[in-house]
């Protein structure tokens, strides 16, 4: 199993890890870097629970090879604690009742972060489209949409 050493920035921290070349970014973030906020939900890019920001762009980390993080900025949900917009979104999720079992929540929050950066004042339909790649089984999405809308109005 060939290994590769990569250097990247993980939530602002310069990071060097050695990973098998076929390892996913999700596995690397969870099992090598030890950050468990990014969740495994399906492993095939269908549920969005593993959403991260790569150079500020959201994607499913289960579909990304860890080695592709080399030289780039990786932001996970843990990294949003240092980000004013991220914190605003998290608070809005709490206040709007957008969290039940909470398993999809980190992915939703990261996806919302990208949505609001690109579209600071989205319509409800734009919010719905913006999170269509993130599945939630508990909430029926209403309060998640409410939360993102509220965060956009602050």
């Amino acid at each position: 199993m060939s290994q590769q050493t990569i250097d990247f920035t993980l939530n602002g921290v310069p990071t060097r890890v050695s990973v098998p070349v076929q390892m996913s970014a999700l596995e690397m973030i969870r099992n090598v870097a030890g950050l468990t906020g990014t969740k495994y939900g399906c492993g095939e890019g269908e549920c969005g629970a593993c959403t991260i920001l790569l150079d500020g762009v959201s994607l499913n980390s289960c579909l990304l090879f860890a080695v592709e993080c080399d030289g780039r900025q990786v932001t996970t949900v843990e990294g949003l604690a240092d980000d004013p917009l991220g914190r605003r979104i998290e608070k809005a999720f709490v206040d709007a009742g957008a969290v039940q079992c909470g398993f999809c929540t980190p992915g939703m929050v990261v996806q919302a972060r990208q949505l609001l950066e690109r579209t600071p004042h989205p319509s409800r339909e734009e919010i719905q489209r913006g999170i269509e790649g993130n599945l939630c089984r508990c909430t029926g999405y209403v309060k998640i949409i409410d939360a993102i809308e509220a965060a956009s109005k602050e």
Binding site: L35, T36, G37, T38, K39, T76, V77, E78, L80, A81, E90, K91, F93, V94, D95, G97, A98, V99, Q100, G102, F103, T105, P106, V109
Partner: peptide
Amino acid sequence: ITKLDAPEKAGGKTRY
């Protein structure tokens, strides 16, 4: 009333 464990879940800190 907001859910008691919502802040830690929204922050990705909850350990399942």
